[in-house]
Simulated assay, not measured.
Amino acid sequence: MDAGERRLDSPQALLVSNNPYASPDPLSLGRRPRPDQGVLGVLGVRVEGGAQAAEPALRRARATGISTLTARQVTVHADAPEIPVAVDGEALSLPTPVLCTLAVRTLRVRVPRDRPGADPLKQDRTRRPDWRDVIHLALTSRPDSGT
C-alpha cells in the first residue's frame, strides 16, 4: 500500500477514510473533527501472533501492529486480481490496484447549529440561513447524476 511518499508493507487490514480520525486508537476511532481537510486518513493493521493481536486493547495507539498516516492519494496493491472492500458499509470486490483519492469540495453537508456534540460557544444564533445558497444547492445538477 502506497500513501503518498510512504509505503505500508502487507497490512492485514486497512482503513482508508475521508480525513483522519481524531484518535489513532483503533478501539475508539471516535470522530473526524473536520470533514474538509482534503487528506485521506489511513490506519493499517498487521499482527504476528496472539500477543501482538492483544496489543491494541492494552497499549491502544502505541500498539506495534498499528500504523497511522495521512496522504492525498492511497494505492492498494495486491497479488490477487480483486480484493474485498467495504465502501460506506457496502461489501464489494474491486479490481487491483485500488486507487483512493479525494474530490475536494464535492460534498457539502448542512447540519443543525445545535446538533449533539456542537460547541455551544461557537453557535451564532443571530445568523440566518442564506436561502439563495440552499436553493442553488437544491437546483444545481451534478455532472454525474444524470439530471
Rank of each mutant, 00 (worst) to 15 (best):
D144F: 15
S93T: 12
V76C: 09
E82C: 01
R127I: 11
S141D: 10
V76W: 06
W131Y: 14
R108N: 06
L137H: 15
R72W: 09
D124L: 00
L92V: 07
P143H: 14
P112G: 06
D133W: 01
R115P: 03
V85K: 00
D130R: 08
T101E: 09
D130L: 08
T101A: 12
P143W: 14
G89V: 07
R105M: 07
H77F: 14
R113L: 13
L92E: 11
D119T: 01
I83K: 02
D144W: 15
L99Q: 12
T70E: 09
V85H: 01
D133E: 13
H136I: 09
E90K: 08
R132P: 00
D119V: 02
R142E: 06
R105L: 05
P116M: 08
T106P: 00
L69C: 09
V74D: 02
T96M: 05
R105N: 12
A103S: 06
T68F: 05
E90S: 03
P97W: 03
H77D: 12
L139W: 04
S145H: 10
D130S: 03
R108P: 00
L107R: 10
T75A: 08
Q73F: 02
R125W: 15
A91M: 12
D79N: 08
D119N: 06
L94Q: 04
D79P: 04
R105I: 00
H136K: 13
T106D: 11
P81H: 05
D79V: 10
R142G: 05
T140I: 07
T96C: 08
L102K: 01
G89S: 04
V134L: 15
T70H: 03
H136A: 15
P81T: 06
R105K: 12
R113K: 13
T96I: 06
T101S: 11
P81C: 03
R132Y: 02
P95R: 14
R142P: 00
A103G: 05
H136S: 14
V85N: 04
S93V: 00
R113E: 12
V98S: 01
D133M: 02
T101H: 02
I135V: 15
R72P: 10
W131A: 11
D88R: 05
V74M: 04
P143D: 15
V109N: 00
A103C: 01
A80N: 08
V104I: 12
L139S: 15
C100K: 00
R105T: 08
V134Q: 09
R127F: 07
S145L: 09
E82K: 10
D144G: 13
E82D: 04
T70F: 04
I135Q: 14
K122I: 00
R108Y: 06
T68R: 10
C100I: 06
